[in-house]
Every structure is written in structure tokens, then in C-alpha cells.
């Protein structure tokens, strides 16, 4: 059993509008038998935080094209993307690049 994880989520670039306009969320992921990965985090976000229009945030089991993900200030492509194993106190940022400029 892995202990519950406290992580910090941040939404920006307009993605926060899907979360009642709130940019920063401190959340606790419940303990579960396997370690949490980003794929499971996305499911958890959809069930617990995402209030409307999930299609604007997720596509399949990943994020929608045009949404950038940073884990602890690094491109998630360097961290294993969906397979990254979350750690306590991790900082995950989702930024929508759509309609920006």
C-alpha cells in the first residue's frame, strides 16, 4: 500500500475556466495499492475536479492536444508522460495553449 499523496495542481492559459476559474488546487490522492501515475491522476481529476466539458481537457486517456503539461517545472515528455509515477509534494501544471497569442 502506498500512502496518500499531497500534490499541487495548477491550471493556466484558460484551462482554469474548466475548473470554476480556480488556478491552483492542493489535493490529496487517496492511498491505493499501486503507485499513482499521471494517467490515473487524469481520471481522478475528471471525477473530482472537472466540472464541465471534459472533452476540452482530456482526449482518450491523455490530455487534449494543445494542453502542455509540466511536472515539477519540467516538460512531462522528459518525465515519462502518462507513466510518470507521482511523488508526494509533486507540482503538476496544465496550460492550455489554445487561443493564445
Amino acid at each position: 500500500m502506498a500512502a496518500p499523496l499531497a500534490i499541487h495542481l495548477e491550471f493556466g492559459g484558460g484551462a482554469e475556466l474548466l475548473f470554476s476559474g480556480v488556478k491552483e488546487h492542493h489535493v490529496t490522492l487517496p492511498s491505493q495499492s499501486e503507485p499513482w501515475d499521471v494517467k490515473q491522476l487524469l481520471v481522478w481529476i475528471q471525477r473530482n475536479l472537472l466540472k464541465e466539458r471534459p472533452e476540452l481537457f482530456v482526449q482518450g486517456d491523455s490530455v487534449r492536444p494543445g494542453i502542455l503539461v509540466l511536472i515539477n517545472d519540467a516538460d512531462w515528455e522528459l518525465m515519462g508522460q502518462l507513466d510518470y509515477k507521482l511523488q508526494d509534494q509533486d507540482n503538476v501544471v496544465f496550460i492550455s495553449t489554445l487561443h493564445g497569442g
Binding site: 493556466g12 492559459g13 502542455l68 509540466l70 516538460d75 501544471v93 496550460i95 495553449t97 493564445g100 497569442g101
Partner: peptide, 9 residues
């Protein structure tokens, strides 16, 4: 756009 958003962040 990606570079811009990363830089800004």
C-alpha cells in the same frame, strides 16, 4: 506557442 508558454511559466 509551446516555447512561449514554457518561457512565460
Amino acid at each position: 506557442a509551446k516555447e512561449v508558454f514554457y518561457y512565460n511559466h
